[in-house]
Design a protein around this nucleic acid. Structure first.
Ligand SMILES: [Mn+2]
Ligand SMILES: [Mn+2]
Ligand SMILES: [Zn+2]
Ligand SMILES: [Zn+2]
Lengths: 124, 124
DNA sequence: TCCTGCATTGGATTTAATCCAAATCAATCA
DNA sequence: TGATTGATTTGGATTAAATCCAATGCAGGA
């Protein structure tokens, strides 16, 4: 356990946190000025391998890192400003995919992304 | 209508087609040797604006272009080889997101990506 | 304290995509 | 048909995200 890894973990702590690697680096630098981007990328990659952090790709910009790996959830994204909220829909989308629509795949996971406009952007 | 646009449209014709811009360019070159990447990007961008082609981002590699914009559908992706199939699940995921989980957003769209292993990769 | 192997660093590299100014071309009109 | 012109195409430069890599640094055990 190094100071760098501790700082990355600290930055990722919280709810509805979905930061890019660069944002993580920017915040990490304020606590440990000489931490490098490479180390942030390395550490994030390890946390993802360990299953402690999830990669979220809600758009085609930079990947985002999600510390909420404990409880499975989906995402609600503002199409205008990119704000992301964790959501927990009812129902099981896996059950909604009939065998005839599985093409012989072994389906193990499903990812749901809701899109819309957040209250902030709607009022502007 | 130019020869370049016609060729891009031809390459995108078909079912379960989800090509990257580079793959579109590679196929276009066989029909029109001097077509440039910039033109392929320009044309794809226009087709997307016109709503005739959809951008699909099933992984964090290159965007894929989907000519099946007529009938709304979702995707089933092989986690190993990246193969993509169009799927039409039953049920309406929008109905599964309660008001209490909408955080004041106006939700207009939902995107569902199933992940698994295709029969090809499973037998290998 | 000294080793040793893992971690960190900064810079170079890769990949996807975008930008841009110059050259080219398609379509209209005389 | 030939000239005009505004849109299209082109290739190269640029940007952004991520990865790679060799050299250096350092944590933790002997
Ligand atoms: Mn999340
Ligand atoms: Mn499709
Ligand atoms: Zn917003
Ligand atoms: Zn496969």
């Amino acid at each position: 356990m190094t100071a760098q890894r501790r700082v990355v973990a600290e930055v990722l702590d919280g709810e509805h946190v979905h930061l890019t690697a660069d944002e993580v680096h920017a915040q990490a630098v304020t606590k440990l000025p000489e931490i490098s981007r490479a180390t942030v990328y390395n550490t994030l990659g390890e946390l993802v391998s360990l299953g402690e952090v999830l990669e979220v790709a809600t758009d085609k910009r930079a990947k985002r890192y999600d510390p909420n790996a404990h409880r499975p959830h989906h995402h609600l994204v503002c199409a205008q400003c990119g704000a992301i909220r964790d959501v927990h829909p009812t129902g099981n989308p896996l059950a909604d995919l009939p065998d005839t629509e599985r093409f012989g795949f072994t389906v193990s996971d499903v990812e749901v992304t809701y899109r819309g406009v957040c209250p902030n952007c709607a009022s502007a």
